[in-house]
Computed example of a mutant assay.
Amino acid sequence: MRRSDQVRLFQTLPHACGYYADRTAQNLVLDPAAPNLDQLYEPALERGFRRAGGHLYFPHCASCHACTPCRIDVANFRPDRSQRRCLQRNTDVVVTECIPGYNRERHALYERYLHSRHAGGGMDDAEASDFRRFLTAPWSPTVFMELRTGPRLLAVAVTDICLNGISAVYTFYEPEEAGRSLGTFAILQQVELARRRGIPWLYLGFWIDGHPKMDYKRRFMPLQIRTAQGWIDMP
């Protein structure tokens, strides 16, 4: 590595785990003040890092190694029966790649989603500054994929697009439309976006074996997970 390519790596203090109430968590974070985060993003993705706001992080907990980076093999992915039904239920949805950022319509949907899915979790009173800080970064190659029926905004899939990988950063959607399976539909649209652009991987963040909130990722096969030996196909 050339000296100009070096970047500092920090470790956070222990904090409450977002997945297990009885555990604490720590992350490794690339220096958020590094001037070349835009250039570091793609190799960091390949190493299993994740973006949250302007931070690139990787779980690094002393007594737990449950969080496993995972990615969809785009070229070989085929929707299963349930995913095909999801596509059929949403034939009336129009998907548009939009400039990222805050507006009142997106923020109102974000608030409804958080109140429904994460009530009491500390995120459910998100202000405009919280929206901007969590979902966007000035250096990230982000698009907001808006899902609409007519003028009505149903979902926003925050999507980062690099040359060799797309990252599904965060999706929020209308809680009243649970029957549409909009989270699944958004991932299927991100797969199609990757296909159109000839991008081989769709990164889904972290998978946790046996965790009910993470089990849905197993359905997007073939799925790869990252181990100490590198990326391997999930058994």
Rank of each mutant, 00 (worst) to 15 (best):
L182I: 06
E111I: 01
F206L: 11
P32W: 14
T142H: 00
D73Q: 07
A228E: 14
R78L: 10
A157N: 05
G205I: 13
C70K: 13
F131S: 00
I166Y: 02
G198E: 12
N90M: 10
D92N: 07
K213D: 06
G230Y: 03
Q6R: 10
F77G: 00
A137I: 02
V94T: 15
R8L: 15
D160W: 02
E177A: 15
M234K: 14
F77V: 05
I187G: 11
Q224N: 03
G198I: 11
A157H: 01
G183Y: 15
H65K: 10
D92I: 07
E174L: 12
L40T: 01
E127W: 05
S140P: 03
G165F: 05
L193R: 14
P32F: 14
A62Y: 10
D31S: 07
P175G: 07
Y113Q: 04
G230L: 02
Y216M: 01
H115V: 13
R3Q: 08
V143L: 02
Q6S: 11
D38V: 09
Q224L: 02
A157T: 06
N27D: 15
A108Y: 01
F58R: 13
M123W: 12
I166W: 03
A62N: 14
A119Q: 14
D125P: 01
G122Q: 13
V74E: 06
G48C: 09
R3D: 12
D31K: 02
V7N: 09
F134T: 05
R196G: 09
L223K: 06
F144K: 01
D31T: 03
G210D: 06
G183E: 13
S181V: 06
C61G: 12
Q6E: 13
Q6T: 09
E174I: 04
L37P: 02
P175Y: 01
L147N: 05
C61D: 13
C67K: 07
R218S: 03
Y41N: 14
A34T: 07
F77A: 02
Q26V: 03
Q83E: 03
Q39T: 14
D130P: 02
P175K: 05
E42K: 05
Y173V: 04
K213A: 08
